[in-house]
Amino acid sequence: MSELQVNMTLRAYDHLVPLFLGDVPTPGLKLNLDHRVPMVSTLSENLAAAEVSFNRYVLAAAKGDDSIIGLPAFILRGFRHRNYIVRRDSPLENLSDLRGARVGTNSWSDTGTMWARAAMRDAGVAVTDVNWVIGDLDEANPLKPPTHMDVDPPQGTQFLRSGQTLMGSLRDGGIDALTTAFMPDSVFEPHGEFRRLVRNFREVEREFHQRTGVYPGFHIVAVRRDFAEAHPQAVMTLYDALRKSWSIWWTKAKKFAESSPWAMEEIETQVRDFAGDIPPFGTESDAHKRMLAMICHEQFAQGLIPTAARPEELFAGFDSIKAKVSG
């Protein structure tokens, strides 16, 4: 019997390298992985599965859009307290200092930006306490094209004119701070012109995690609904392959821990403090339930959605497929 061809877009994260190398069996499937294309918001007819924005997926679920089925595979996670930057000489030192400030961002609907605002709100600064500015990050990173799952920023948000950039505005004092996914090189330089707003971000993020129990998820894997309904076993095979890839990587990481001088300490920190988030799959653990509840609450509290999604229903489609295959 010939294998089912499954086209999929996916970034080549470390824990997915075994999958890309072909070290993970996918019985009955021929996975055609592409890590070179930008992340998609909708799955075309020739794309069965893809890495997608978790924020946009939950927004769609809140609106009743079930055209794709999300798998509880939280393949990209992180904290966003660290993702605010200011000028080196800025008097701002904490997220609470952003009240009344002019803060730039190059995306309103990205999951990371949503979690960055959640961190700010946790520090006591409401979304409406900030004067938001949206525009191109720099000449090399323009605004992303809008998608049907994007939401509008608050009234009064300023949009930069053509030729203006957020980095330029931060440099010349047009804005006070900036939150974006990837830090400019100068942040990593000891005396660069920009620095992180939260200098002790690890300490602040650790406190946030200890208090809330939430390790934010950014991206998940999703499949087209018609594909899933036609090939439920293929969906479970894919999900199992993602889990197996992570398991192979995790075993290797614990054996070698060669990615940085203190990678072993990081692994032990994960085992000690993030047990409910290891592995990053499923919705059964209390840690994952807390994270799902928080993303639904934050979308409503930030004014992204008039009615919050129900966390227990976010992966109902996957649960149905799983039950069908298991039964």
Rank of each mutant, 00 (worst) to 15 (best):
A253L: 15
R225H: 09
S260A: 13
L71V: 03
I321N: 00
I85E: 08
A116E: 00
A301F: 06
S90P: 09
T9V: 14
K30W: 02
F274M: 09
A119R: 08
F218W: 12
H209W: 12
N46T: 13
L160S: 07
P142V: 04
W250Q: 13
G317C: 10
S90F: 11
D122T: 11
S169C: 08
H288S: 11
L178P: 06
F159S: 04
S245C: 08
D286H: 12
F20N: 10
E45T: 15
K324D: 03
T147C: 03
L95F: 06
R310F: 00
S245W: 00
L178C: 04
Q164V: 07
H219W: 09
G174H: 06
R206I: 13
G168Y: 04
F54T: 00
L29F: 02
A181H: 07
I85T: 09
L21C: 07
D23W: 11
M167E: 09
T9P: 06
P146F: 02
F318S: 01
S326F: 05
T42R: 14
D277E: 11
V271Y: 01
E207Y: 02
T283F: 00
L71E: 00
H81R: 15
V214T: 09
K30T: 11
Q210F: 08
K322C: 02
I305D: 02
L4P: 07
R211W: 03
E207R: 15
V221I: 13
S44M: 02
A241R: 10
R82L: 10
V24H: 03
D66N: 10
N32V: 13
V133E: 01
F182L: 09
I321K: 01
S90Y: 10
P18Y: 04
